[in-house]
Structures are given as C-alpha cells and as structure tokens.
C-alpha cells in the first residue's frame, strides 16, 4: 500500500484518514497509461513485462491473417462458371470437374485440396447444415449440449471428491501421507492412456467418457485445494482462534474463503484439461458429443464437418474461460490486490 505521498498532504489535518485518496491519485495515471503505453515515461521497456500489453490491432491482424491463409490455400481457382454455379461443395465440384472433358485439369489450382482441408465456404455451409439438420443423427446443438453436460458433470464430481480430499491433505499429517502416494502416482497418468482399461471396466459409451473426465479433473482439484489450504497465513488462522473461532469455524469462515483463489485457478485448469480430454473421451462409442460428431464425419471424409466441429470446440473453450474470468473477478475481487 502506498500512502507515502498523501501523508505529506494529510499531515496535520485532524483525524485525516490516510491513504484513501492515494488510491484515486494512483488510478489516474494508470488509466492514462493504458491508452498510450509510452506516456508513463519509462525508459526501460524491453524486458519490463509489466510494460507489455496485448495490442488489439495486432490481434485483429493475426485473425484476419489466419482467415486469409485459409481462404487462399483452399480456394479453387479457374474453375469454369458452369461448375461454380452448381449447388455443389468444392470437393464435389472438383470431382465432377476432373471427370468432365470440358474442365481441363490444369485449369484450377489449390494449395490444400478439398481432401486435405475444407474451404471456408464449405465449412460455413456445414455449420449451417449441422445446426439445422445435423450430420447422421443429432444436430450441432444436441452435440454441444451433450459435450458441455459431460464436462460439467466430470468437473462436478472432480470437485466434490477432490476439494475435501485436498483440504484433508492440507490439514492432517495422516491424510497428507495417505493421499500423497495416491495423488503423486495417479496424477502424471494421461487420461488417454487409460481408455483401454476404462472401456473394459465401464464399457463402450457414456460410462467411459464420463469417468475419463472425472479422472482428468480430480487430481487437479485435489492439488488446488491442498495449496489453497496452504495459502492461509499463520497469522490469519491464529487471529481467528484468538477471536474465539472454533476449529469448525476456522475451516468454514477462514480456510475455505481464503482458498477460493486457488480453487478457482484449479477449476480453470481442470476445465481446460477436461475440454481437451473431451474429444478423445467421446471417441469411445458415444453417440452424442462434439468429439463423437467429428469422428463420425471422418470415415466419410466430411472434412467440412470435422473443421466445423473443431471451431465450435475452440470457440466454446474460449467462451468458458472468459466466463470463468468474469466470475472470478466477481467472486474474488481481492485477488492480486493489497
């Protein structure tokens, strides 16, 4: 906390409260600095990571660049108008073109052929079809709901089991010793490595997918909860006891809220890992789910469906992380301050 500057100003004023307007004083240059990074008059910027901010213009350039690269590399050039007009996908059109006498083979070129990567147009169309009719069964929405529900359920059980275990590890020697062995042995196992075993135990389908996701999140939540208990400073705990709190009250009113930042970090990491495990988990014979959708499209070379699925997974992942960040700022406003 910085109340050095205001001290001089408030000095002598009777009952002046230190520091309150110091915050206001500091807020001003900070907001200015955000607009123009060079205005904070720093001479050393290379190596000062606090002076580095994400330049939105370059983010936009990167995004446009990706789209352009995609467009350029999948664009079929020089096809006859006759073939373009037909209501065909690029892949079909080129197949037709190849079989046709009128459409010379040299008349088009592509960096990535339709069997390597689908064009933007095809992917867009696939997205539309997926949303309304679906591909070989459920629509995109049903797949999305199944995937999200699967991840939420896995996270839920990971938290319900992981957080108490982590807290026990942070509070008792016996629990720490007992669970240390288990956690340290199981944590490094990639969930994918367990797919064959899980199939044997839980059968092909939802059971395996569900348990794989629980496995993915549980160790992360245990470790987050353990370090959350460890984050409580001794003086906080001692203060609570000397204010008359019982052990139970110390747990509920001090250790638990104090662990929230670590728990939240754990939830965010676990969500990322679960989302990453999802596609593989849904590979094992689930009917619904974004992963299942992608793998259903693969044997038919419906790369447009595959890429559409991948994009939906990416966008949902970003969206969920943003949601968690907003939630975090609401629930733990004290994080990183003071």
């Amino acid at each position: 906390m910085s109340d050095a500057g205001m001290g001089a100003r408030a000095g002598g004023v009777s009952g002046a409260i230190d520091g309150m307007d110091a915050a206001a004083e500091y807020a001003l240059p900070a907001s200015k600095a955000k607009k123009s990074p060079n205005k904070d008059r720093k001479t050393v910027t290379f190596g000062d990571s606090s002076a580095v901010r994400s330049d939105t213009r370059w983010s936009v350039i990167a995004f446009i660049g990706l789209i352009l690269l995609w467009w350029v590399s999948t664009k079929p050039w020089g096809l006859d108008e006759a073939f373009k007009a037909a209501d065909l996908s690029d892949a079909e059109r080129i197949t037709v073109c190849n079989q046709s006498e009128e459409c010379g083979r040299d008349s088009y070129s592509q960096l990535a052929g339709p069997l390597t990567f689908p064009s933007i147009r095809d992917t867009w169309n696939a997205m539309g079809t997926l949303a309304t009719e679906g591909f070989r069964g459920p629509t995109l929405w049903e797949h999305m709901r199944a995937s999200l529900w699967r991840v939420v359920r896995g996270m839920f059980w990971g938290m319900v089991v992981g957080i108490p275990v982590g807290f026990a590890m942070g509070l008792s020697n016996k629990a720490r010793g007992f669970f240390d062995t288990i956690v340290e042995l199981f944590r490094p196992i990639p969930p994918f490595a367990l797919i064959p075993l899980f199939i044997l135990i839980f059968g092909i389908g939802d059971g395996t997918a569900r348990n794989l996701l629980i496995f993915a999140s549980i160790w992360i939540m245990i470790i987050a909860a353990r370090s959350g208990v460890g984050a409580a400073s001794l003086s906080k705990v001692r203060a609570a006891y000397s204010l008359g709190a019982s052990k139970r009250q110390v747990l509920q009113k001090v250790l638990l809220p104090n662990a929230l930042p670590e728990l939240f970090t754990g939830i965010r990491v676990a969500l990322g890992v679960s989302w990453g495990t999802l596609v593989a988990a849904e590979l094992v014979g689930t009917r619904e789910g974004l992963g299942a959708m992608i793998f259903a499209a693969r044997p038919f070379f419906r790369l447009d469906v595959v890429v559409a699925g991948v994009i939906v997974i990416a966008v949902l992942g970003v969206f969920m992380d943003m949601l968690l960040r907003i939630l975090e700022a609401r629930l733990i406003p004290w994080r990183g301050k003071g």
Partner: peptide
C-alpha cells in the same frame, strides 16, 4: 494453555480477512 478471547492479538499485517 491456548488462544482465548480475553487475549486479543494484532499482527504486523496480512491477518485481516480479505473476503
């Protein structure tokens, strides 16, 4: 024999409950 309410403690810093 242990902490009690009749003896209050003020620490150097960081003992307040931020939440």
């Amino acid at each position: 024999t242990g902490p009690g309410q009749e003896r209050g403690m003020v620490f150097q810093q960081g003992a307040l409950f931020e939440w």
